[in-house]
Structure formats: C-alpha cells, structure tokens
Nucleic acid binder design. Structure first.
Length: 742
DNA sequence: GAGCACTGC
C-alpha cells in the first residue's frame, strides 16, 4: 500500500525535459495502452532507454505489474538502473532495481526492473507468462543478441496466442521493442504490423572518408595494421585537437600497431596551434577485453593538456565501452567473428570484413560529444563488394544446442516453425537436436527427458552439464563442479608476448601440471582451482604462476552458483543416484565420458587423431596440452573443444579407455536426418516410431559392430569446410612470407 | 610446437 500512496501523490521532480523523446511522452503512453506491440526507434541520445520506462511508470502501468527492461550487457543494465533511480529520487534496489548474473539488486518494491536479456530468459523458465510484469521493453534489439532474438519470438507467441498461453495473467502483456533506426519495418511486420515510433537522436554529424589502400583483395593483417597506423599519424599531424579511436581485430594486432605508433610518434616533431590549444604529443593506449581491468581504466582518463589520446581497440569500443572526447575514428574494416560450422560441428574464429551497419556504428563513436570524422582505410569498392549490409545475427552463426533445449523446456516442440525474426539454417537445428539426443536431454520423439529438465537449469553447454549430473549421481560432484566452472570462464593460463617471459610461464604451467599428476588437462584445471582457493594470497599465487586472477575469481563465483543449482535440484525426490566402485581418477574420467563422448577422437597415425563424431576430422593435440608430445602413448581421447588455426587442434584433452565409450559410440550415428526433421516438427507418429525401431533392431541383428562403425567414420573424413578455413589461413601465411622475402 | 573478438546465464 505504501508504494501506491507514494507514487500517486508524488510528482516526479527531476525530469529530463530537454531530451528528444520528451515531446512524444503522451503519445508513447497512449500507444502502449492501445497496442500489444510497439516498436520504438531512435539513435543514441534520444533518451529512450532511461525515459520510456519512467513514462510508463507515470502512466500507472506499475500497478498491474513490473515494467521490465532488458539489455544485452550487464554494465548497461546496472548503469542505466542507477541513473533512472536517481532521476526518480529513490534508492537503487527499491522502486528501481536491476538484476544480472551474480547480482540481484531488486526488492519487493521494485516496479522498474532493468536486467540482462539472459536473466529474463531464465525467468521465463519458471514463469512462462511473466505474470509479474505488465510491460516488457526489449532494448538494443538491433544488436540481435541470441537471447534477445529468442525473447522476441517467445513474447510474440505469448502475446499473440489468446487464452491458453496466457493463463495466469489477468491482463495482456505489453511488449515494446526498441531498436536503432535500422530494419524497423521488418520488426513491425514480424510483430503483426504494429506501430513504429521514431524519435530523433541527438548525436553530432560524422564525416566519413574512404581510403584507397585496402581493396577487395587485401585482407592480410600486416597490410591493414600498417595502413591504420599511417592513417592515425596523418590525423595526428593534420587535424585539430580531439582524440583518436582506432579499430583493429585482436590483441596481437593492437600490440603491433601500438609498437609502430610509439616509434613513429616519437620521431614526429609536431605542434598544432589553433583556437582551443595545441597538440604536441600523442598518448597511445591499447584496449582489448583480456587486458587487466586497471589498465583498461586508464583509457577513460583525460589526456594531459596538449596531448592527444589515441586508443587502439578491438570491437569492445564499438558497444561495450564508451570513451569520451573521441573525435576521429580510424576504421580497419575488419573484425574477429566466431562462426559455427555445422558441417564439422566446430566453432571457427575468423577475421572477416565488418558489415556496413557495423561501420556506421563505429563511425558514430566520433560524434557523441561534438562533430567528428571517420577515416576508413578501405575503398568504396571494398565497401560495395566485401561488406554485407548487416551483420549476420548471432542466432544464424552459433551452436544452438542450449537454446533449443531451453525452447523445448518452454513447451516449444516445433523448433523449426518457431517464430524466428531470422530463421537459423535447418541443419543448425538438426545438429542441436542430435547433440541433445546424444546427451539424453531429449528422447527419440524430441520430448525433453527428466534429465533434460535438470540440465536446462545449468548455465553450461549441455555436454558439460551431462558430465556434471553424472558426477553428482555418483557422488563425486566436487571433482566436476570446479572443472565446469573453469571451462566456462576465459582462459586462465597467461602466456605473455615476450619470449623470455613466455618460457618462464611455460615452465610454471608445466610445474602445475606435474603437481596435478600430469595425467590430463581437466585434472590440471581442478588442481589449479583448488590450489588457488587454498592459498592465503590467491592473487599473488596467480601472479606467481602466470594464472589469470580475474578469470579464476569468476570461476569461483561460477562454481558457487553451479553448486547452489545442484543442491536445489538434488532436493527433488527423483534426482538420479547410482553406485560406482573403483578409483576416483577413473570415476572422474568416466563422468567426463558420459558428457563428452561426442567429443571423442582416436589416434590414427603418428600424432594425427581422427574424431569419431561422424565427421571424421583429422585433428592434432594442441601444444599447450599436457598430453602434447605424448601422443605415441595415446589411443582414445576426449576433448573439451577445438581450435582451428593452421591445424585443427584439440584443447583440454583427457585420455580414456575404449571400453568406457564403447557402449555409447553407436549413439553417435544412430539418428538419421529424416528422423531428426520429424522430431524437430513434432510429427512423430506411432507408425514412424515403429519403423525406426524395426530399423534399429535390424541393424543390431545384422551385427553391425562398433569396430565397423569406427572404420566407416574414419573413412568419411568429411572436413572440407574446415579445410576452407585452413586454406585461407595458409594463404595468408604464404602471402606474408612472400612479402618478407624481397 | 603454440597465432582467441565480444557478450550472456
């Protein structure tokens, strides 16, 4: 009651009446009342993220339920909530709050709730009709994050379907979709032709210029690194005061570029004297995600008088971090992108040209506080021929295994005809179904199993969850929980760029491996986790052992969260329990096999292994593995993931015994595509089921042995898609060598 | 014999 009187009587004192969205206030409030769906579009500075939730609050929507606002990123959810709570004169966590992973800052009073899109998706799992909410606002929809895309489809279904799906709701849910001005018609059509509100932005004009150096055929890293450096120096000597932001693709490129800049900038004797001061020197600052946090913070410090700042960054500066004072952009035109290859079931990290919309996003970073300029090092031809209009949405280039399980658990059985804004390729869906079937999350009819219901609770890839649950049912979860946590954070082993430090780091890592027993890479992760946790000075211990302290800290949080989820599930009566007699090391590895038997490889000749997943890819053990150089003693191994560079490398490897996976192997080729597409559409009739069963038994009767299957898989060797990526990689290497030669 | 962007639960 108290909150009702408070908000009814209290006028909102501080209101940003100067924002471009303000004149639209009444119309927006009306439009949300009158429509189930609404698209609101406006570029940066329109005030839509901070103001619209307040307008809806003032219009009284909070009386019917919370106003939920999603963001693709944690920091955004937190900082916007902070701002809005100030504007509404309440303390953060009361009327205005936020929820992100590991940090729930909400209370019973919370009526305006900012959260990450992933958090809302979790919430839908326990409350499918979102009975707590009157309005859901999806923000930054143009970024097309996987979770936002899924939410979009789910909310469309929930709101459009009349009675059945809305049980538990007294009033219909309102959905507002906010996006930058791109593709809003498409969104409106997707949401049944709903109205579109356009709010003018408030950013400054940015003049874009094309270069002439990079054309259609220049995709070699050394070329564009040199070119951005040259361009940055030209800006420095030729343009008035204002900081520079350079976009490159990764850490090593950035370090290279900075090295050249340090060298050249020092040799420039340069004074620029005009109006507001002079530019004398250049302050060069690298910026990428894996950099220590305190070093990242330096970026935000204003430069000393007379000094121009030049930040050389990855895409992290495109959306995640905003640097004030940037007036000039130097755009390489490239980005590193993780693409999933369903032909070989591998993720491949590739350098690709950015999209035109991404280029505009980068340019926009120069016009936040004053007019700016954007220097693109590529030419018009590159823009026309190599750069797509839009970035392929994440849902179309990522493994869908987790997402499909989530959908299935939400009762979306027909995962092919689910309303996707952009439909993923059918083979991506088939691959996900196959993996889910293989780790017992769904049955042959595509129905979620009891195990699958447990698995969906964990924020982990299903295979790893399967291994964890197996361990839990055998009473050895203490071995798997830390490993699962370590595998879901960034790489914990630091390997510096300088050769001497590198040697030292390798030595320390080898020592850690020896102390852990040196038998496999999973055990090393467990050992490092435990050693650090037991240490009196964990951060010093990490530094001493070349271990990433920030990563390990987050592994500790993840482990705690996973343990909490597990304890909650174990209280359920039907949690599976089994017995096992044998030694702990074997138990540990057998649990891994249960989840990772899809990632199994057998040594064929020399140091070459062949995957048994049905693709028969030829792979090698990565040199960072403790098993590297011991290949001759190995036969069967399982692995956590692969890295495609000059070769296909297995990382985080564990030797196993053939008879641990023998019984599981037939499952790798049991399902055929015809079955899967029926399963995906949920059209499995009893006759079909009977047919499949008889086929299975016929196979068994014919005595198709596991050994024969293995032979068949080795023969297939279907790795052409990886070969493509590798060929490109080697081509680049060759070009580099040729360039060095003269 | 090592060539990994970013985000999220």
């Amino acid at each position: 009651m108290s909150k009702i009187t408070k908000w009814d009587s209290m006028e909102v004192l501080h209101e940003s009446k100067n924002l471009p969205i303000y004149p639209h206030k009444a119309k927006l409030q009306r439009a949300v009342k009158d429509n189930s769906f609404l698209v609101v579009t406006g570029e940066t500075g329109s005030g839509k993220t901070t103001q619209l939730p307040q307008y809806l609050h003032q219009a009284g929507f909070w009386r019917d339920g919370k106003i939920g606002v999603t963001q693709p990123r944690r920091v955004a959810a937190i900082t916007v909530a902070q701002r809005v709570s100030e504007e509404m004169h309440c303390s953060l966590g009361r009327e205005v709050g936020y929820q992100v992973r590991f940090d729930d800052c909400t209370s019973e009073d919370t009526v305006v709730k900012y959260m990450t899109d992933g958090c809302l998706l979790r919430e839908i799992l326990t409350d499918p009709v979102l009975s707590q909410y009157s309005v859901i606002i999806l923000d930054e929809v143009h970024e097309r994050s996987l979770n936002t895309d899924i939410l979009l489809g789910l909310l469309k279904q929930t709101v459009s379907s009349t009675d059945e799906a809305c049980k538990g709701r007294s009033l219909p849910l309102k959905v507002v979709v906010m996006s930058a001005t791109l593709e809003t018609d498409k969104l409106s059509v997707f949401l049944g032709g709903c109205p579109v509100f356009t709010i003018p932005g408030r950013s400054f004009p940015v003049i874009c210029r094309f270069g002439c150096a990079i054309g259609e055929k220049d995709t070699e890293s050394t070329v564009y690194v040199k070119e951005v450096v040259k361009m940055a120096l030209d800006v420095h000597t030729g343009e008035p005061a204002g900081d520079i932001l350079v976009f490159l693709t990764g850490q090593s490129e950035i370090e290279k570029a900075c090295d050249i800049l340090y060298e050249k900038a020092e040799s420039i004797d340069y004074r620029y004297d005009v109006q507001d001061g002079k530019v004398e020197g250049l302050l060069i600052l690298p910026l990428y995600g894996s950099m220590p946090t305190d070093q990242q913070k330096q970026i935000f410090q204003p430069p000393p008088p007379g000094i121009r700042k030049c930040v050389v960054a990855t895409n992290i500066a495109a959306t995640s971090l905003t640097i004030n004072g940037i007036k000039y952009i130097v755009d390489s035109g490239f980005v590193k992108q993780l693409n999933h290859n369903s032909r070989v079931s591998m993720d491949i990290l590739e350098v690709v040209p950015i999209s035109k919309s991404e280029a505009q996003q980068r340019a926009g970073r120069a016009g936040r506080t004053s007019p700016g300029k954007c220097f693109r090092i590529y030419n018009q031809e590159f823009w026309e021929k190599c750069m797509p209009d839009y970035t392929v949405p994440e849902i179309q280039r990522t493994s869908l295994t987790s997402v499909i399980l989530t959908l299935k658990c939400l009762g979306v059985h027909d995962v092919i005809r689910f309303p996707y804004l952009d439909r993923p390729e059918e083979r991506f869906i088939m691959e996900a179904l196959k993996q889910l079937y293989q780790c017992d999350a769904i049955d042959r009819r595509g129905k979620v199993t009891a195990l699958g219901e447990l698995m969906v609770e964990f924020p982990l890839p299903p295979g790893l969850t399967r291994a964890l649950l197996q361990a839990a049912s055998l009473g050895c979860e203490d071995l798997l929980l830390p490993v699962a946590a370590m595998l879901s954070v960034e790489n914990i082993f630091i390997r510096p760029g300088h050769p001497e430090k590198q040697k030292e780091a390798d030595k320390k890592h080898r020592l850690l491996a020896e102390q852990a027993g040196g038998c496999n890479d999973f055990t090393i992760l467990l050992s490092v986790f435990e050693k650090c946790k037991a240490s009196d000075h964990p951060s010093a211990w990490c530094k001493n052992h070349f271990i990433h302290w920030r990563a390990l800290k987050s592994a500790f949080s993840v482990e705690t969260q996973l343990r909490e989820i597990l304890v909650r599930l174990q209280k359920k009566r039907d949690f599976p329990m089994e017995k096992f007699d044998g030694n702990k090391s074997e138990l540990f590895r057998r649990c891994l096999c249960t989840g990772y038997f899809t990632n199994v490889a057998r040594r064929s000749v020399g140091k070459v292994f062949c995957t048994m997943d049905g693709h028969g890819s030829m792979v090698h053990i990565h040199p960072s593995s403790t098993l590297f150089d011991q290949e001759a003693q190995l036969d069967w191994v399982i692995f956590h993931d692969v890295l495609v560079t000059s070769r296909v490398y297995l990382r985080t490897v564990c030797p196993i015994r053939y008879d641990w996976v023998k019984d599981l192997l037939p499952k790798l080729h049991e399902v055929d595509v015809y079955e899967l597409s029926s399963v995906a559409r949920q059209e499995v009739t009893d006759e079909e089921m009977a047919k499949w069963d008889s086929k299975e038994s016929a196979k068994r009767q014919a005595g198709v042995s596991v050994e024969e299957t293995i032979k068949k898989m080795e023969k297939r060797n279907d790795e052409s898609s990886v070969t493509d990526a590798r060929a490109r990689y080697q081509q680049r290497k060759l070009e580099r060598q040729q360039r060095k030669a003269p």
